[in-house]
């Protein structure tokens, strides 16, 4: 009885893993195929039908390096803003006493409940028409520049640090800015890694917002370029499916590798609504 149960359990777990990973295997094998082979035999690697040409084939439609660079700039901008503003706000909420602190903390919680589909159109109108930020990195970064989850991560971390440390520095006559720079920031380093991992994936994978505000192909991040590429019927490609899947691999690999490297940091308490796309 216990044996059957264990067999059943591992059977279910194995089946789940196959279902989760099979599309990724197909992504890889499809990206390497010289000629599209949709038959079941095509699922197995056939040495005579393998090539890396699909990757360069993308460049006929859009510049892979430009798109990657745009993705990188957008992601780096979002992560940098999230870390700086998240750390400042988290520190203030945990350590400092000031008027309106309760209100700010309530905002942090409330903001997470506002659904993006409600903001999509008005935000688009504001950013494109009033701020004139269409086709710009600033426009891409703006809606993600502050992440409430990052604020909460930093706040939680600062709450665990004995408050006497900050009071002592203050008694020694250190200015508030000095305390922040020389005491708070060095102490909170481990939280910076967590916040970085949690915020990296969102902007890297984000499609809808950059798709809305970038019409210039030279400004589009990879997710948008790739989506446009797979929508256009690129029949002039030797293997259009291979080219799209090769692009998908390029988009997928950084996030997956980062996740596998820092797996233990991806815990349920850290994630929440931080990951979109």
């Amino acid at each position: 009885m216990a044996r059957t149960l264990r067999l059943l359990r591992y059977g279910a777990l194995g089946l789940g893993a196959v279902a989760a990973l099979l599309p990724f295997y197909y992504m890889l094998i499809g990206a390497l195929q010289k000629k599209r082979d949709t038959s079941l035999g095509g699922l197995l690697p056939d040495p005579s039908n393998l090539t890396l040409a699909n990757l360069s084939g993308i460049d006929d439609s859009f510049s892979l390096t430009t798109a990657l660079l745009n993705s990188l700039i957008m992601t780096a901008g979002v992560v940098a803003c999230t870390l700086v503003f998240g750390l400042l706000a988290g520190y203030a909420l945990a350590i400092l006493h000031f008027r309106g602190r309760g209100l700010v903390f309530a905002l942090v919680l409330l903001v997470q409940a506002v659904p993006f589909q409600l903001l999509m159109i008005p935000l688009y109108v504001m950013v494109v028409r009033y701020f004139h930020l269409a086709d710009s990195y600033a426009g891409m970064i703006l809606p993600f520049a502050i992440n409430s989850v990052a604020v909460l991560i930093f706040r939680q971390y600062f709450l665990q640090i004995p408050r006497e440390i900050f009071d002592a520095a203050r008694m020694d006559g250190a200015s508030e800015l000095r305390i922040l720079r020389s005491v708070a920031v060095p102490l909170v380093r481990p939280a910076i890694l967590t916040a970085m991992l949690v915020t990296f994936i969102g902007p890297w994978n984000e499609f809808l917002w950059p798709f809305l505000i970038t019409k210039n192909p030279d400004m589009q991040p990879l997710a948008v370029s790739l989506a446009n590429f797979s929508q256009s019927n690129s029949t002039f490609q030797a293997n259009p499916m291979g080219a799209v899947l090769a692009g998908a691999c390029v988009l997928a690999v950084p996030a997956v590798v980062l996740f596998l490297l820092f797996q233990r940091h991806f815990t349920s308490s850290n994630l929440g609504s931080a990951i979109k796309g």
Binding site: N205, F207, A223, A248, C249, L251, A252, A255, V256, G277
Partner: peptide, 9 residues
């Protein structure tokens, strides 16, 4: 953790 655009392809 993978982009929707990639997995949807």
């Amino acid at each position: 953790v993978t982009a929707s655009v990639a997995t949807l392809a």
